[in-house]
C-alpha cells in the first residue's frame, strides 16, 4: 500500500465523529471610521501612510521618489515615467531595485494589511526584493476586518496573493525591532480618495 493510502486509512479510522462548522457571523469587528483606523494601525507597524485626493497622487509620488532611482511600476491606471515589470528576465535581475509600485486590491482596518496579487505585480519577487515598497489603494476599498476581506476576495484568486502590513522586520536579536530584515526596509501606503 502506498503511504498516501496508508495515511488516509489511518486517518479515517482515527478521526472523531463529524463536528459542525461554527457560525462566524457573530465575530466581526467594526470601527467608527475604518479608514482612520487603517491608517492608525499601519502607521504604528512601521509604514508611512499618506491619504490624499486621487488627482494629487501622481505629483506627490514623483516628488517622494525623486530623481535617478531604479523603479518598477505595476499600476496600469497611471501613466508614470517608470519601467514596467519585465517577465522575460530572471527575477534576480531586480536585486538592486529601489522602488516597487504596486496597487492593492483592498486594505483591512483591524490590522493595516493590504491585499495584493500577482495579477497586478506579475513578477512575484517585486514586493519583496525592493528597498522601498509603495502600495497604492483606494480609500473606499478599506474593510473593517479579515472576515470582510475574505468575503470580498472570494476564492478565485490567481496563483499568488499576499496580505502585506508594513516593511519587512525582525526582532530576533534581543527583541529589538529592526526594520528591513530580508524584504523592503521602507513601506509607504498611498490611500487615495
Amino acid at each position: 500500500m502506498s503511504s498516501r493510502d496508508k495515511i488516509l486509512n489511518a486517518v479515517k479510522a482515527a478521526q472523531p465523529d463529524k463536528q459542525p462548522l461554527p457560525d462566524l457571523s457573530a465575530i466581526p469587528l467594526k470601527f467608527d471610521d475604518a479608514v482612520a483606523k487603517f491608517i492608525e494601525v499601519l502607521s504604528t507597524i512601521g509604514a508611512t501612510v499618506k491619504r490624499l485626493p486621487k488627482d494629487r497622487f501622481q505629483s506627490e509620488l514623483m516628488d517622494d521618489i525623486g530623481e535617478g532611482k531604479n523603479v518598477v511600476n505595476t499600476i496600469s491606471e497611471f501613466v508614470l515615467d517608470f519601467a514596467s515589470p519585465d517577465k522575460t528576465v530572471a527575477p534576480q535581475t531586480y536585486d538592486n531595485l529601489d522602488y516597487s509600485i504596486i496597487p492593492g486590491q483592498l486594505g483591512v482596518a483591524e490590522n493595516g494589511a493590504i491585499w495584493v496579487t500577482d495579477t497586478e505585480f506579475q513578477i512575484r519577487a517585486l514586493p519583496f526584493i525592493c528597498e522601498h515598497l509603495i502600495l497604492v489603494i483606494s480609500a473606499e476599498t478599506i474593510v473593517h476586518n479579515m472576515h470582510e476581506a475574505y468575503d470580498k476576495i472570494g476564492i478565485d484568486n490567481p496563483g499568488f496573493g499576499a496580505f502585506i502590513a508594513g516593511p519587512s522586520k525582525t526582532a530576533d536579536i534581543e527583541q529589538s525591532l529592526v526594520l528591513g530584515a530580508h524584504g523592503p526596509r521602507f513601506m509607504t501606503a498611498y490611500v487615495l480618495e
Binding site: V41, E110, H147, Y150, G161, S168, A171
Partner: peptide, 29 residues
C-alpha cells in the same frame, strides 16, 4: 478559505502581540 480570516486574526496577536505578520503569503500555483 474564509477560515483564514479567523486564524490570521488569532495567530500573530497570540504569538507576538502584533495585529498580523508583515507577510501572509498565499501560495496557490
Amino acid at each position: 478559505r474564509e477560515h483564514l480570516g479567523v486564524f490570521l486574526r488569532l495567530l500573530t496577536r497570540s504569538a507576538t502581540g502584533q495585529p498580523i505578520t508583515t507577510y501572509s503569503s498565499h501560495f496557490k500555483k
